[in-house]
Structures are given as structure tokens and as C-alpha cells.
């Protein structure tokens, strides 16, 4: 998967390139709108990460020009988040919008979603190592033993398992599991994950839920 990053701030460009490369993407980096547009229209990219405030021509113009010839998905990055700006971006043909500061895990999740395009196919049965999740009957077993979960614990486990291997940020978890769509400074998510771990992981030697400090949580079999 090839991604073009158009970002004028050197630090931001550098960490985006490094982070996305390490997440398994091939990354090109343009430092201004003109170079960005040039690359975007001559090379083949699966996705473009576009900063709005750029020297030369700004992000809006880049998208406007790009949309004349290409339909490459565009994810806007911006420090401004007034609604009219968002609407403007989306009307111009941007596919998504991420406001700074954002969690890196959130960025990767959005990129994956855009690349996947379309709903994740809901699987009726999930299996990670010896953990079995029957989504329809809401039944969880591990190592053959049945584990009782509350409704929200099940929703949390289902989310982690459905996106196994993906680091999920706290705000994403709060939004998906409890529909709390704002940043809260409570440690609700940490506590919920801790309680889920007590049931899913503690009795077993092989741990499945991992904490990515400062980023969030991931469920994967690291054996």
C-alpha cells in the first residue's frame, strides 16, 4: 500500500513517514502543495495524507486540482476543526478529516478504514489462539471453558477481536463500545480493559490483550 504524505512541517512529515513505514506502508513525502500535487497526479498512490495549511498552494486547492483527474482517497490533517472547514473539505472531495492533535493509532485506524472502503464484513465467529467468540449467541470460551461477560465487556472484546492486531485508541474504544463521542479524562476504558483481562487473560498463561503505552490496546496472539 502506497501513501503520499503532503506536510510542510519537517517534524510532522518525518514522524508520519517513519510511523507509517513501520506500520507497513510505502510512504512518499512532499513538503509543499505544488510538489504534492505533482506527485499525486503522476504517481499511483492508494491514499494521500494532506495537510490543509501548506505553502504555495493549500490543501483545498490540491484536492480541487487532483479531483479533476484522480479519485485517490484523501485524508485531511488539520489543526482547525470548525464545521464549515470540514464541510468544505468533504465537499471538495476529501474522504476523511482528522484534527490535530490526534493519536497515531487513530490515524492508522482511519487509513485502514479508507483503504478497506466499505463495512468490515461482520464475522459470526471469531477465533484468536484458544479464544472463541460466538458473536450471534454472545458466547465466549477460552481453553474450552465458558467465560461470562457483561454486555459491555462482550462489546469491548468483540471490538478488539474484530480488529485484532490493530492498536485501538481509548477514544475509539469509548466511542464504539459506549457511544461516548468525546475525550473524557476518566480512566473508564483502562478500568474496563483491566476487568476484561481479569476474565479473559489472567487465568491463562498466554496473554492476548496487550497495552500499547500511550497508544491504546491491541488484541493479538504474540506466541
Amino acid at each position: 500500500m502506497r501513501i503520499l504524505v503532503v506536510e510542510d512541517e519537517p517534524k510532522a512529515g518525518e514522524y508520519l513517514r517513519q510511523g507509517l513505514t513501520e506500520s507497513g506502508f510505502v510512504v512518499d513525502w512532499a513538503c509543499n502543495g505544488i510538489d504534492g500535487l505533482q506527485l499525486a497526479t503522476t504517481e499511483q498512490y492508494d491514499l494521500i495524507l494532506l495537510d490543509v495549511m501548506l505553502p504555495g498552494i493549500d490543501g483545498w486547492q490540491v484536492v480541487r486540482e487532483l479531483r479533476k483527474t484522480r479519485q485517490t482517497p484523501v485524508l485531511f490533517l488539520t489543526a482547525r476543526d470548525q464545521l464549515d472547514e470540514r464541510i468544505k473539505g468533504l465537499e471538495l472531495g476529501a474522504d476523511d478529516y482528522l484534527v490535530k492533535p490526534f493519536a497515531f493509532a487513530e490515524l492508522v485506524a482511519r487509513i485502514r478504514t479508507l483503504l478497506r472502503r466499505g463495512p468490515i464484513r461482520a464475522s459470526e465467529h471469531l477465533e484468536i489462539a484458544d479464544l472463541q467468540i460466538d458473536v450471534v449467541r454472545r458466547r465466549v470460551t477460552r481453553g474450552g471453558g465458558r467465560i461470562d461477560l457483561t454486555a459491555k465487556e462482550f462489546a469491548l472484546l468483540h471490538l478488539l477481536a474484530a480488529r485484532k492486531g490493530e492498536v485501538l485508541s481509548r477514544s475509539l474504544i469509548a466511542s464504539q463500545v459506549w457511544d461516548m463521542n468525546f475525550d473524557s479524562d476518566t480512566n473508564v476504558v483502562d478500568v474496563a480493559v483491566r476487568r476484561l483481562r481479569a476474565k479473559i487473560d489472567e487465568p491463562f498463561p498466554r496473554k492476548l490483550i496487550h497495552t500499547m503505552r500511550g497508544m491504546g490496546y491491541v488484541l493479538e496472539d504474540r506466541a
Binding site: K152, A174, W178, T186, N187, V188, V191, A192, R194, R195
Partner: peptide
Amino acid sequence: QRIAEYFEGVAAE
């Protein structure tokens, strides 16, 4: 109820 569930874990602790 949704908010109560959200804080369920923290409250229990």
C-alpha cells in the same frame, strides 16, 4: 443507563 454502564467498571473498583 448507558452512562451508568460506562462507569460500571470504575465504580466497581
